[in-house]
Design a protein around this nucleic acid. Structure first.
Length: 871
RNA sequence: GGGAGUUUAGCUCAGCUGGGAGAGCAUCCGCCUUACAAGCGGGGGGUCAUAGGUUCGAGCCCUAUAAUUCCCACCA
């Protein structure tokens, strides 16, 4: 057994302990039929990522659950892995190549992928090693990657199956295009922000020369791709114009005026330019009226050859030029300032350009229905009802998911197209077809890859072996709980649910335990641009991983955001230090030769032993219940408070005058460490390995068994009695402090009480903890002139400070107390004489009030007689 | 435009199905009491956002208002 160092210095043991756990294989979980399964799949961090404070929270919560369940005897698997993060990683590699003066086209697809894999090899492990610093007890033997062979197979199978069922289709739609990332992105990857823009009113001359129709737009450059003007069919202003044509300014193209109910008569001029290739609504209008589609921009949002003389201009340059030219032609009616929401790329922030193109889509309606049903029928439980609503609303309004990306790093779409122009046959297949089975032409694979989230959606089963029917998949699926932040509910949680139901015929997890985000001290989101991020590794370095972990959950309830402040970490570290020193104290009082913790026979237990044992026993029950309900912060708080307040501040102090207390001290220490272990794994292990144990206890706290409530250790009467002693000590201390009696000064104490046995058995505590001497405990005590009287409901404490007592002041103090008690009695009395309360309140409540009244009356008598004694 | 959350001590937050308002930090007072000054003991500090309502009883339930944060939609 090793000695604990004098100082708590987590740096000295956290890494060593983690390596030891890993070496012993404690993190590994098997499909062990003799145990119950418990499984969490990690939200796979991006290989581009550095561990940030959000990961730290996310993984702390998971580690708490996994460690707790492991201790409860489950085969607890925490399955780790990383995400290839197609856009993010590709952007990094493109940037790195740019430094070398190279582009994607220079190195080609294969060359690019080589670089990407190399990048993954070099940097992909960074975040994993950082997770280890945090104490994450993942089964690293089962670590997966979204682009490893198995996950890729799963992706391929899912894509093909969905295609064969008609749930994946290819088509031309207006999608969100990022001109910087040069790829399509899905609707939820587009983030809107309100910006100041302009509303340009433009006259479109009627072809017949009879006048103009005025339209208004926020994106005048799209005029180049207009193929109609739309008005509302019931709009009297324009009824006569429907069916006529206008001459599109600058382009000299004749385009029709069509009637469509999509137009809002009240908004703008009531006439809308229609650009089907660059606006999703216009696209729909275009379909209804069979309008041509004119794409006017290339993949960098530069005007292409369809833009006439504007070709080659960047979109904002084109906008300026178009406005200027319209002005020149006298067609610009006016320019109004206009606030509107502009969509930006989630990854790079570039303003997204809606653009018609051929893309692959997952048809969502059919998949979404069962994903909502499992929530309604309770097969899948959202711990947070608030976020259940978010999920349900999102699912109800779901639209088809654009899954193709014009990127190279990712799962390539297993679709092949016949290159014969007259054929154009399309095959979706796991293996490349030799030739077209219709015309024998050459088949080439789709150049595009899939949305990163497509593979993430399969994570709970692809990591367990799907599409193979592995023992792991059989045993651990459905997983137990998923633990994501609320900001990835649509991206990830929702998609896992419908994917799991579709391909595994069951929910991917039983519970969804959503957590909030960590914000900075001003409540702002942490971000790179603000530079307000907190690096968890710095925190670990300075305070230790245990302190970091406790900081993130202590006093935090479920799904609320956490406001970061270093003072919280300091508090958490101070708690660790407190525990450390308590352990040192307990251990230094173990007699030589003591090797096994064994609780003494019940008859040998003192009242304070029973008090702490009983309190601890109830703590087990409470903490376990809180964990069951995912109230991790509350659970941690209770263990924290027990250790600091009950165990350290009272029990240790109470037992300082005994030499046989090590039994109970160790008994509680051993067990409370177990309750704390899921939250603070390192310090609990370090202390655990420095102490003797009960029989059957193991070499590591990680694999020790969780505490169980024990009926035998329930001593409610002693608990209640001992609280009376504590109350007395507290009151005496308070009065001493109030009267400036120096702590070193011993004062004689008399206790007048009807519970003489109780107080006699506890006399030593008044000496040690309240600085009293010469204890005299009687049923009736005649008070002398210079005493200070301290009444409680159960006793009258009389101290002689030795100084002259100001009798008037003393009387005033007691009268003050008397007034308080009278107020109490009055209050409770009113309640009890209230007809409504007696008849309608629960009986237990009424009984409770009666008890309170009786206590107050006892106290009243005690105070009254004290005052009488003084007068 | 639709929806959700938050509002409790100077700060950060607890407060379970309604039964006399809590913690930590900060502050003030007193202590180096041989586990811990990263500590110990004690104190002060709150018309629980506002206005109504339900109830014997409201921080908690209902309605409205205000402030604040966020999500969704995206009418050009």
């Amino acid at each position: 057994m090793k000695q604990l160092d004098k100082n708590y210095s987590p740096k000295d043991f956290e890494n060593r302990i983690y390596a030891d756990w890993e070496k012993k294989g404690y993190f590994h979980a098997e499909a062990d039929k003799s145990k119950k399964p418990y499984c969490i799949v990690i939200p796979p961090p991006n290989i581009t990522g550095q561990l940030h404070i959000g990961h730290a929270l996310d993984n702390t919560l998971q580690d708490i659950l996994i460690r707790w369940k492991r201790m409860q005897g489950y085969s607890a698997l925490w399955l780790p892995g990383t995400d290839h993060a197609s856009i993010a990683t590709e952007a990094r590699i493109v940037a790195a190549m740019k430094d070398e003066g190279l582009t994607k086209d220079d190195v080609g697809r294969d060359g690019f992928l080589e670089r990407a894999w190399e990048w993954k090899r070099v940097y992909g492990g960074t975040i994993v090693s950082q997770l280890k610093k945090l104490g994450s007890s993942c089964d690293w033997e089962r670590e997966r990657f979204t682009m490893d062979e198995g996950c890729s197979k799963a992706v391929q199978k899912v894509f093909i199956d969905l295609y064969n069922e008609g749930l994946i289709y290819r088509g031309e739609r207006v999608i969100n295009w990022c001109p910087n990332c040069k790829t399509s992105i899905s609707d939820i990857e587009c983030e809107y922000e309100e910006k100041d823009g302009s509303f340009w009113h433009i006259n479109y001359p009627l072809s017949d020369g009879s006048g103009n129709i005025e339209i208004a737009t926020t994106r005048p450059e799209t005029l180049l791709g207009d193929t109609a003007v739309a008005v509302h069919p019931d709009d009297n202003r324009y009824k006569g114009l429907i069916g006529k044509t206008v001459k599109l300014p600058l382009m000299n193209r004749e385009i029709p005026i069509v009637a469509d109910e999509y137009v809002d008569k009240e908004f703008g001029t009531g006439a809308v330019k229609i650009t089907p290739a660059h606006d999703p609504n216009d696209f729909e209008v275009g379909i209804r009226h069979a309008l041509p589609l004119i794409n006017i921009m290339d993949d960098s949002a530069v005007i292409n050859e369809n833009g006439g003389k504007y070709a080659g201009m960047e979109r904002y340059a084109a906008r300026k030029a178009v406005v200027k030219d319209l002005e020149g032609e006298g067609l610009l009616v006016k320019t109004e300032p206009h606030k509107h929401n502009v969509g930006g790329c989630q990854r790079c922030g570039t303003v997204v350009e809606p653009r018609a193109s051929q893309q692959w889509f997952v048809s969502m309606k059919e998949l979404a229905a069962p994903a909502m049903e499992v929530v309604r029928d309770g097969r899948l439980n959202w711990v947070s009802k608030r976020f259940e609503n978010v999920y349900m609303q999102w699912m109800e309004n779901i639209r088809d998911w654009c899954v193709s990306r014009q990127l190279w790093w990712g799962h390539r779409i297993p679709a092949f197209y016949c290159q014969n122009e007259n054929c154009g046959h399309q095959i979706v297949s796991a293996v490349a077809p030799e030739k077209c089975d219709k015309c024998g032409g050459i088949m080439l694979q789709d150049e595009d890859t899939l949305d990163t989230w497509f593979s993430s959606a399969l994570w709970p089963f692809s990591t367990l072996g799907f599409p193979e029917k592995t023992p792991e998949l059989e045993y651990f699926y459905p997983t137990s709980v998923i633990v994501p932040a609320y900001d990835i509910i649509p991206f990830w949680v929702a998609r896992m649910i419908f994917s799991g139901l579709k391909f595994m015929n069951d929910v991917p997890f039983r519970d969804v335990f959503i957590h909030g985000l960590i914000r900075d001290e001003q409540g702002r989101k942490m971000s790179k641009s603000l530079g307000n991020g907190v690096d968890p590794l710095d925190v670990i370095d300075k305070f230790g991983a245990d302190a970091l972990r406790l900081t993130m959950i202590y006093g935090v309830s479920q799904d609320s955001d956490v406001r970061w402040s270093e003072s919280k970490v300091t508090s958490a570290r101070n708690f660790a230090n407190k525990l450390w020193n308590a352990a040192r104290y307990v251990f230094m009082n173990i007699p030589d030769g003591f090797d096994t913790i064994k609780l003494p026979d019940k008859s040998k237990l003192t009242i304070e032993d029973k008090w702490i044992l009983s309190k601890f026993n109830r703590l087990i029950k409470a903490v376990t219940a809180n964990l069951d309900a995912y109230d991790l912060g509350i659970a941690a708080g209770k263990v924290h408070d027990f250790i600091w307040n009950d165990y350290c501040d009272w029990y240790i102090e109470l037992t300082k005058s005994r030499n046989d207390a090590h039994h109970v001290l160790l008994f509680i220490m051993e067990r409370v460490l177990k309750l704390l272990h899921p939250f603070m794994p390192f310090i609990t292990e370090e202390i655990w390995q420095s102490m003797p144990h009960s029989t059957g206890a193991t070499e590591s706290i990680m694999v020790a068994s969780w505490c169980e409530y024990d009926e035998e250790l329930c001593f409610l009467k002693e608990e209640e009695d001992f609280e009376k002693v504590i109350e007395g000590i507290r009151k005496i201390r308070a009065v001493r402090s109030e009267k400036n009696v120096p702590p070193s000064k011993r004062v004689p104490l008399q206790i007048e009480t009807s519970e003489m046995d109780l107080f006699k058995s506890c006399d030593v505590f008044f000496e040690k903890l309240a600085g009293c001497i010469e204890l005299d405990i009687q049923e009736n005590i005649q008070t002398s002139d210079n005493c200070t009287i301290i009444p409680t409901s159960h006793a009258r404490f009389i101290i002689l400070t030795g100084d002259l007592v100001d009798r008037e002041k003393e009387t005033a103090r007691l009268k003050n107390e008397l007034a308080k008690v009278k107020k109490d009695i009055d209050f409770i009395g009113k309640k009890l004489s209230n007809e409504g309360f007696i008849t309608k309140a629960p009986a237990a409540q009424v009984e409770n009030e009666r008890q309170k009244l009786a206590n107050a009356n006892d106290k009243l008598k005690i105070i009254e007689s004290s005052i009488k004694g003084l007068e």
